[in-house]
Design a binder for these strands. Structure first.
Length: 666
RNA sequence: GCUGCUGUAGCUCAGUGGUAGAGCGCACCCUUGGUAAGGGUGAGGUCGAGAGUUCAAUUCUCUCUAGCAGCACCA
């Protein structure tokens, strides 16, 4: 029999001091529960309470408090409260509904995620999205029961038995491999017989549950390992009430309109097709964006002492063997035989006897080849070598995603060859450059990760210590918050990852900065030090945008296609109201064109309403509208995207201000 | 690569075991209109590819392929 964790506090118990968030203190008997404290403060508070925080730790309302502690009550109004509610919806309502409808289903895990939750379940038959309605209906039934949720603490043996009895092998595995021996928390739902294993806390009762909706089903590997069984993951979202849920769903709908793949088609920027899976066909308008990005970063790099190079696309696999890519990265490489194809009708196209070449997946080995030409002195370092290198990676089909994940990409790549004592300065300079650039694009929601040494690595620990310290310092020096992801570094060195969000909140790594102690040595890079001896330089792989494709995708989504003037594929349209103004419009167009602006002329036989709407939908930032009046007075009516009114300006002034506005920020 | 879903006109999407429809767009005509859709007429599709079941397949089944969502992997 499980022992209850919710004993009533005994009057004879020694007293403890509870400190409330406002700083006031209260005295209670040892073992007092959060609920009892809440009741002693106010009845309404006890009613709204769903969990508590004891010394910053989330606990259930029924947990006894044994020592002096800082104490806080969690209600649904807080983010924490909402998350607890989502957790309960997953673990108690979704899981229970699944078991009611599919008794043979095996429950795995059901955590919360941003805006919702999921549950991984093994089903006998595949589950499709159509089944979600049925499950959701069952969930509503369960919610309406308003059942209380009771916790019990169990020994390992008791917990294992409870789940073996219910034939839940995943739960048993979790318990057995937890490394924990006692105090397994099982949450039971009223008299239903349903239990779930959970860290908690949970709502004290289902009556606190607000509005929820199941969103989608997908596959997910057990424990995130692709060698394991694939389970069915059911995603859902939950909110305090119907209104919040509706708002969230509407927000998602709006966000989908900003999807770069949708805008790419609507705005005639690029397309993809079967025959070149995962590679972009940039249309004229889209390529403007690409070129603007490239030229912008080129100007930036020039001013911080980078030199630009260009290296071969096809390189003999011998070099890839030497660099280590053949061993570590080959499954992501495209390999071509260096052989004249057989032209016989029936014969095989290639014999397979030719030497193998690989299309480069990265630029780094080629950059070392340039570094290796001639003898380098310590005085030459650092050498910052940049390349807008076009790389091909044979990405898994399921990984491809519009511009965000492609098989042919161009990185704003560079490699810095430096001495170990220069690492900190170089890393700092990079982060400064990175931030200056992202500011120009208005990106502020940037997640920074510092990925540190993995288990399998090259280089000795003293070097790793120094490298990781330098990288942490580089961020700290600029006062930036970052998350350390231990073990996530490359085998050759620690790295920064800079992540940006897309329209629906998925994050994508864009910028990166990686230290490398291995490649220069493998490829024989060296410099003559002050001491006259040969030394191996450190190599820093770094990219600000990451890939131009991905960055363009993120930019399109973050702006909803309303690109800043300097990047906009069409900066202005000159549109006529009547055919009488065609000559004047042409004159304006010619002047803007001569000034290097990207401008279009619209003298079509359409009403001005129609033209304005069409160019607005196409997200052209500025429309110069001209009719007879403007032609007579040498003026233009300037209409800006999203604006309600137009501004009458003299032609000269309008052109001058447009030219100024179209200037890049750098 | 794995799991599930989807593939019909340039785009968005209906629809059917008897070889297809709408809106937008496009072309032509009328309209010269003052800031987010003026009117008329017309042209467009081997219904993703292949195989099977059937008298008959765009529709049912299988395989392949691509896309979407997620997982794994990664800029």
């Amino acid at each position: 029999m499980a022992e209850s964790s919710c004993p009533s506090s005994s009057a004879a118990a020694p007293s403890i001091t509870i400190t409330l968030p406002d700083g006031s203190t209260r005295t209670y008997g040892q073992g007092v529960t959060g609920l009892e404290i809440a009741e002693s403060i106010a009845k309404s508070l006890a009613k709204a309470a769903i969990a508590v925080k004891v010394d910053g730790q989330q606990r259930d309302l029924c947990d006894p408090i044994m020592t002096d502690a800082a104490f806080e009550i969690i209600t649904l109004d807080s983010d924490e409260g909402l998350e607890i509610m989502r957790h309960t919806v997953a673990a108690q309502i979704l899981a229970c509904a699944v078991k009611n409808l599919y008794p043979e289903a095996k429950l795995a895990i059901g955590p919360t995620i941003e805006n919702g939750f999921y549950y991984d379940v093994e089903f006998k038959e595949p589950l499709s999205e159509d089944d979600l309605d049925k499950i959701e209906k069952e969930m509503r039934k369960i919610k309406e029961s308003n059942a209380p949720i009771q916790k019990s603490l169990n020994s390992k043996d008791q917990a294992v038995k409870a789940f073996e009895k219910r034939s839940e092998p995943y739960k048993v595995k979790i318990i057995e491999e937890s490394g924990q021996e006692d105090n397994f928390q099982l949450y039971a739902q009223g008299e239903t017989g349903f239990i779930d294993l959970c860290r908690g806390p949970h709502l004290p009762s289902l009556k606190h549950v607000g509005a929820f909706k199941l969103m989608k089903v997908a596959g997910a590997y057990w424990r995130g390992d692709q060698n394991n069984q694939m389970l069915t993951r059911i995603y859902g979202t939950a909110w305090r009430n119907d209104k919040e849920l509706k708002e969230y769903l509407q927000m998602l709908e709006e966000a989908e309109k900003r999807d770069h793949r949708k805008l790419g088609a609507q705005m005639d920027l690029f397309h993809f097709q079967e025959e070149a899976q995962g590679s972009v066909f940039w249309h004229a308008k889209g390529f403007v964006i690409y070129n603007q990005l490239e030229n912008y970063i080129r100007r930036r790099l020039r001013d911080v002492d980078y030199q630009e190079v260009k290296t071969p696309q096809l390189i003999d696999n011998k070099l890839w063997e030497k660099s280590g890519h053949w061993g570590k990265f080959r499954e992501n490489m495209f390999v071509v035989p260096d052989e004249v194809p057989n032209t016989d009708e029936d014969g095989p196209v290639i014999t397979g006897k030719g030497r193998l070449m690989a299309i480069k997946p990265m630029n780094c080995p080629a950059h070392v080849q340039i570094f290796n030409q001639g003898i380098k002195s310590y005085r030459d370092l650092p050498i910052r070598m940049a390349e807008f290198g076009c790389c091909h990676r044979n990405e898994a089909h399921g990984a491809l995603h519009g511009l965000m994940r492609v098989r042919q990409m161009t990185q704003d790549d560079a490699h810095i060859f430096c001495r170990e004592d220069q690492i900190l300065d170089e890393v700092k300079a990079f982060v400064e450059l990175f931030y200056a650039v992202y500011q120009d694009f208005g990106f502020t929601d940037i997640q920074i990760k510092l990925a540190t040494r993995p288990e399998v690595r090259a280089g000795d620990d003293a070097v790793w210590d120094r490298a990781e310290a330098a990288m942490a310092q580089g961020l700290e020096a600029l006062g930036l918050d970052f998350e350390v992801t231990p073990g996530e570094g490359a085998f050759y060195g620690p790295k920064y990852e800079f992540h940006l969000r897309d329209a629906i909140g998925r994050t994508w790594q864009c910028g990166t900065c990686q230290l490398d102690f291995v490649l220069p040595e493998r490829l024989g890079a060296s410099y003559i030090g002050e001491d006259g001896d040969k030394h191996i330089p450190v190599m820093i792989h770094r990219a600000v945008f990451g890939s131009l494709e991905r960055f363009a995708g993120i930019l399109i989504e973050s702006t909803g296609g309303k690109l800043p003037l300097w990047i906009a594929p069409v900066q202005a349209v000159v549109a006529t109201i009547t055919g009488d103004a065609d000559g004047y419009a042409q004159e304006i167009y010619d002047r803007l064109f001569a000034l290097g602006l990207r401008v279009e002329l619209d003298t079509r036989n359409e009403k001005i309403n129609y033209k304005v709407r069409e160019h607005s939908v196409a997200k052209v930032p500025v429309i110069f509208v001209v009719g007879n009046r403007e032609a007579d007075e040498k003026t233009v009516a300037v209409r800006r995207l999203g604006g309600k009114d137009q501004e009458m300006m003299s032609l000269d002034a309008a052109i001058e201000s447009l030219v100024t506005e179209c200037k890049p920020p750098y």
